[in-house]
């Protein structure tokens, strides 16, 4: 219970710092500043990772429920969907798969190379 309150306070603090930073400097959306702040506070051990672990993992597991209201908003756009729905789905499908393929393939290749370098280094020693 104590750890849950600790986690909520930690997140709230970071949300506020994020909002302040976005207000003062602008640029990125406030939630990103909050995220960066949360990561840094954990990294420099100002926040205890052990105490927040369980609550945060639970929150991340269930976060998709927050997207439901925005998703239901699609009923506002029947006309657009009727007219261009197929094209929109097609564009999203194609560009998502292009991105998946490029990032996936290239990262797999570079990791293979790095691993090979590791192995050859070891064998020459």
């Amino acid at each position: 219970m104590k750890n849950t309150i600790y986690s909520i306070l930690a997140i709230t603090g970071c949300v506020i710092i994020g909002k302040l930073t976005a207000y003062l400097i602008g640029g990125l959306p406030s939630s990103l500043y909050g995220l960066i702040c949360f990561t840094l506070l954990l990294h420099f051990k100002i926040l205890s990772a052990d105490r927040i672990k369980l609550s945060i993992e639970w929150a991340i597991k269930n976060m998709s429920v927050c997207f439901i209201p925005a998703g239901v908003g699609i009923i506002e756009h029947f006309e657009l969907i009727q007219k261009h729905g197929l094209a929109i789905v097609f564009i999203i499908f194609i560009s998502t798969f292009i991105l998946l393929t490029i990032v996936g393939l290239l990262f797999e290749r570079t990791m293979d190379k790095q691993n090979n370098v590791h192995i050859t280094n070891r064998s020459t020693l």
Binding site: I11, T12, I56
Partner: peptide
């Protein structure tokens, strides 16, 4: 009306994004 009534859920997206700092830290 649905969107305004469920506004608290939508507002939780921001703290949820902040929480993603944990896996990033790890």
């Amino acid at each position: 009306q649905y969107f305004e009534s469920t506004r608290p859920l939508t507002n939780l997206i921001e703290p949820a994004v902040v929480a993603l700092g944990f896996p990033l830290y790890q």
